[in-house]
């Protein structure tokens, strides 16, 4: 298992805040793992994710993807699903696929078309005319249609109905590759815990624990969801 993502003493302080959003984060993610980034709202999950994707600059410390700082080289192998809908509304699904094909060498058009078909999204449909749930699934399809090394999914199932959640989780599992990894952040733990290899608990910008999920089940005799509630009890 090679190292895919590494952060070293990563710190992020937003301009007018006194407390760091991320405080001394050091972690490694090898290839072939599905990793859950779990923590309450405001714990720093999205900040960490944005740093990995080069949307924010670290205050200090480093984040490296296959040894590269976030930039054009890392972005070519990282597929990002943001926690909000960001696709341009005036394009059609077909134009969107062409856009991805133009910029991402690892974009698998066939896979995208198959998934669009199974969700019955018309290629000529204009994005802004789609329902909210369909839009989110579309964004997920585009993210999962890339044969990337690292998939970073920020709250992929929040605000989505249970059937769609199942579809999303099945898509994530069936896209698994041993030379790639998936980092997903969520607070809907019981829905995702069966698909996670490892878990990172984060609170107030600090890592509380990094462990394999099965180890937690063996040692604690509890589900991840139950253990999380214990650790993060208010």
């Amino acid at each position: 298992m090679a190292e895919l993502l590494r952060t070293e003493h990563l710190v992020k302080v937003y301009d007018n805040m006194s407390m760091p959003a991320l405080d001394d984060i050091t972690l490694t993610i090898p290839t072939g793992r599905i990793v859950g980034l779990l923590g309450p709202n405001g714990s720093g999950k999205t900040t960490l994710i944005k740093l990995i994707n080069g949307l924010l600059q670290p205050t200090s410390g480093s984040v490296l993807i296959e040894g590269n700082r976030p930039g054009p080289v890392s972005k070519a192998v990282v597929s990002y699903l943001p926690d909000r809908f960001c696709l341009p509304g005036d394009r059609t699904a077909e134009e969107l696929m062409q856009f991805y094909a133009d910029f991402y060498a690892d974009f698998d058009r066939e896979r995208a078309e198959t998934m669009l078909g199974s969700l019955q999204i018309e290629r000529t449909a204009r994005i802004k005319g789609l329902s909210k749930g369909t839009k989110e699934k579309l964004q997920l399809i585009m993210a999962m249609s890339r044969r990337a090394r690292l998939y970073v999914l920020d709250e992929p199932i929040a605000g989505v109905d249970p059937a769609a959640r199942d579809y999303i989780l099945k898509t994530i599992i069936s896209n698994y590759q041993p030379d790639a990894s998936i980092l997903l952040s969520t607070h809907l733990i019981s829905d995702v815990e069966n698909i996670l290899d490892d878990v990172i608990f984060i609170r107030n910008g600090r890592i509380l624990l990094c462990s394999s999920v099965e180890k937690i089940r063996e040692e604690q005799g509890k589900s991840l969801d139950a253990y999380f509630r214990e650790v993060f009890a208010c």
């Binding site: 949307l55 930039g71 054009p72 972005k75 990002y80 943001p82 909000r84 910029f103 991402y104």
Partner: peptide
């Protein structure tokens, strides 16, 4: 804007 999330995750540099 919102589109910035798409723009800045493209494998391009800020200068480009």
């Amino acid at each position: 804007g919102e589109e910035g999330y798409v723009t800045h995750t493209l494998p391009v540099s800020g200068r480009e």
